[in-house]
Write a protein that binds this DNA or RNA. Structure first.
Lengths: 186, 186
DNA sequence: GTCTATAGCTAGATAGAC
DNA sequence: GTCTATCTAGCTATAGAC
């Protein structure tokens, strides 16, 4: 029982960055190993089922991150709604490197990825929507309007990440983030 | 000089569908050949530089499609603005199979694809934006507002495609299309 | 211009030393 | 628990018949 060279958190963060930027098919085990600081064979020790298990573990990690940093925070009634939003926006900016990153959920939502990881992707998106719906009702929106706005936030942020990447500039991401903040200003 | 078994248009359409749903790394030459109705070696006859040339040709095809079915149509002053919009929406619905397809521009906008095809992706996105900006100014928006709305249309449609795929339902795509139509109702 | 067959390589995955 | 070395399958790409 040797000590772990790399702990789970570091490991998953490295793996996530490769899966996000390259996608499931594009991420090779060599790259995944390199980014995580382990050799291929060691990755198989940590994830015996290989690439599928690696990806699934990363998606669980992402799901936990979203739960903690978006969903639970937006549902936390002991914090002022606009303060929650402000903190969540900061977290989202960190997650997406201020618009310069590819969302792993979209990277994996190709034919290959959806077939295998569809349920996990859906779960994360739903957490996101539930969080923003909660925020909306807390500032006085009806359930219906709050849900519509929550979808709009998700749609616009995902879309702005695509367009930012396609145009090679994060300015539309930044504009979009500002307009999201406006949506909840009372 | 044998006759071509498959013409360029059919060929490119088949290739596009695989590249859209699988992405650049995920699309194998075997799949590309199968979807196009030719054998691998025949694909190399048509595209001597291989997968890169195939993808580049498909992106040119997409660019021409967008130019004709979105940009030029939206800029056609001899048609009523709202009629142009209506027709363009129909074309977009066809392109994206009413929300059930993956946009090839987003499929290729991963690290691997952007590095090689970034300029072509950017060109198509800019055509889209220019078209909707034209529509906006024609119904009385200032240049600034028209451009903001054009970005919003692109961002929302791209985002709604992602979320539709992630949730396994096209309903948010359809809602988004309706709200786009609303944006230009005078 | 399209095909079958195959070369050469890199992918995912495993064996076994330490 | 991590490593080096290696297996096999599938990949991109090519050769050469028709």
């Amino acid at each position: 029982m040797r000590p772990q060279k790399i702990n789970d958190q570091e490991l998953l963060m490295g793996l996530m960055s490769v899966l996000s930027s390259k996608g499931y098919d594009g991420a090779s085990l060599n790259e995944l190993a390199e980014s995580s600081g382990l050799q291929k064979a060691s990755l198989y020790y940590r994830f015996p089922e290989g690439k599928k298990e690696i990806t699934s573990a990363v998606l669980n990690f992402v799901n936990e991150w979203i739960k903690k940093n978006i969903y639970l925070l937006l549902s936390n009634h002991s914090i002022e709604p606009l303060v929650r939003l402000h903190q969540v926006i900061k977290n989202i900016n960190t997650l997406y490197n201020n618009g310069d990153a590819i969302c792993i959920l979209r990277a994996l939502a190709m034919d290959t990825g959806v077939e295998i990881f569809g349920a996990q992707i859906k779960e994360s998106l739903q957490l996101w929507i539930k969080g923003f719906t909660s925020l909306g009702t807390d500032i006085g929106m009806t359930e219906k309007v709050a849900k519509e706005n929550a979808f709009l936030v998700l749609v616009q942020i995902q879309g702005s990440l695509i367009v930012s990447r396609g145009l090679g500039s994060t300015s539309i991401y930044k504009t979009t983030i500002k307009s999201v903040e406006e949506m909840y200003r009372t």
